[in-house]
């Protein structure tokens, strides 16, 4: 059974309008933020917006825009649509949490520990739990899109997008649902760097970005954009004990591969070696890192969306490969219908 991509929408770093991103392939971005300061018919209501992380707000806007664009708004159909989310580890929100910690500074030293704790409790917002709720992206998307069926949220490295995609395809192929939404979002920035650099090892030229990508998959060809013709992941188990994380590319990509979009570098140095490998092995290759930095849990979906542009430019199929923080690889091939 074939599974088709019937719609897509993305918010690339520094580039809110999807329609224009293909014109910016040759530009290099070093700033990994996305603009959340906008209002449109798709913007969540003000009270929800207040309790949303930036990437969640963008995800909600992107999904609603996508559903309208492809005319998928029938509540009965959405009720039977599955939703699989890939998320980063919300590390950027730690900054917000740490700002709360600064409440310590404002508490007089002559208070007892008990009195301090009570003051902190009183000062905490009623919906503090939402800031650490791991499924808040999924629940907000469901709420605003009306999606009510099979679901999960995978975390947290870039491999989570592959898992979300695999689950969506698996659920369609096993007849659990006819269509599924895959939403991949990542919060990147300085704090991710501080946390992830402990795993990767600090390297100069680090770039990690906030990004959101959504695709809709279906068992029905209809007016689909392309099909997913192949996917696989490696079986390499990261060795945490001796801290040797392999970041070379394995032979995951099929031999007939010619056009490749690759991601999974965190710094210029690794990107350079990835680029050399791809230039030597494929007719055409493009690094997502060059344009956008590492987009973590959105890498694979963003690669697919870029790959769709390449299909539109006449390439018969495109291979998208990604490698996560721990060197785990994933591969997806998209092809014209």
């Amino acid at each position: 059974m074939n599974v088709y991509i019937t719609g897509f929408d993305a918010v690339f770093p520094n580039n809110f309008e999807l329609e224009s991103f293909s014109n910016e392939f040759d530009h290099s971005f070093t700033n990994g933020t996305i603009n959340a300061e906008f209002n449109s018919e798709f913007t969540p209501n003000r009270s929800d917006e207040k309790i949303m992380r930036r990437d969640i707000k963008i995800s909600v806007v992107s999904i609603r825009r996508l559903l309208k664009k492809i005319g998928l708004e029938d509540p009965e159909v959405l009720e039977k649509t599955a939703l699989f989310v890939a998320n980063g580890s919300f590390i950027e929100d730690t900054e917000k949490y740490m700002n709360k910690i600064s409440v310590y500074k404002n508490i007089s030293d002559d208070l007892s520990e008990e009195e301090k704790m009570y003051k902190i409790y009183r000062a905490s917002p009623p919906l503090l739990a939402l800031e650490t709720l791991t499924n808040s992206s999924m629940s907000f998307i469901a709420q605003y899109a009306g999606v009510k069926y099979h679901n999960t949220t995978f975390g947290t490295s870039s491999l989570s997008a592959y898992y979300a995609l695999k689950e969506a395809i698996g659920s369609i192929k096993s007849d659990l649902n006819e269509q599924a939404i895959v939403c991949a979002s990542n919060s990147g920035g300085g704090y991710s760097f501080l946390s992830n650099s402990a795993v990767v090892g600090y390297k100069k030229g680090w770039k990690e970005s906030t990004a959101v990508g959504n695709i809709i998959l279906s068992s029905t060809k209809g007016s689909s954009v392309c099909k997913i013709s192949m996917m696989s992941s490696g079986t390499r188990i990261p060795n945490l004990k001796d801290q040797t994380i392999r970041r070379d590319w394995s032979s995951l990509v099929p031999e007939d591969s010619e056009f490749v979009i690759f991601s999974g570098a965190f710094c210029e140095e690794t990107n350079e070696s990835d680029r050399l490998y791809c230039e030597n092995n494929f007719k055409y290759s493009r690094s997502l890192f060059d344009d956008y930095g590492n987009m973590g849990s959105s890498n694979l979906v963003m690669g697919i969306i870029q790959g769709i542009q390449l299909l539109n430019e006449g390439m018969p199929f495109v291979d998208i490969i990604d490698r996560d923080l721990y060197g785990r690889e994933s591969h997806v091939r998209i092809a014209k219908c």
């Binding site: 580890s89 949220t153 995978f154 975390g155 491999l159 946390s195 188990i237 004990k241 721990y326």
Partner: peptide, 23 residues
Amino acid sequence: PYDLYSMYLADKFDAGAFQKTVL
């Protein structure tokens, strides 16, 4: 990173097919 937990058990059970974290 949340994946630490599944990778820990993958190490113990030599589980290479996948190491997933549900949130």
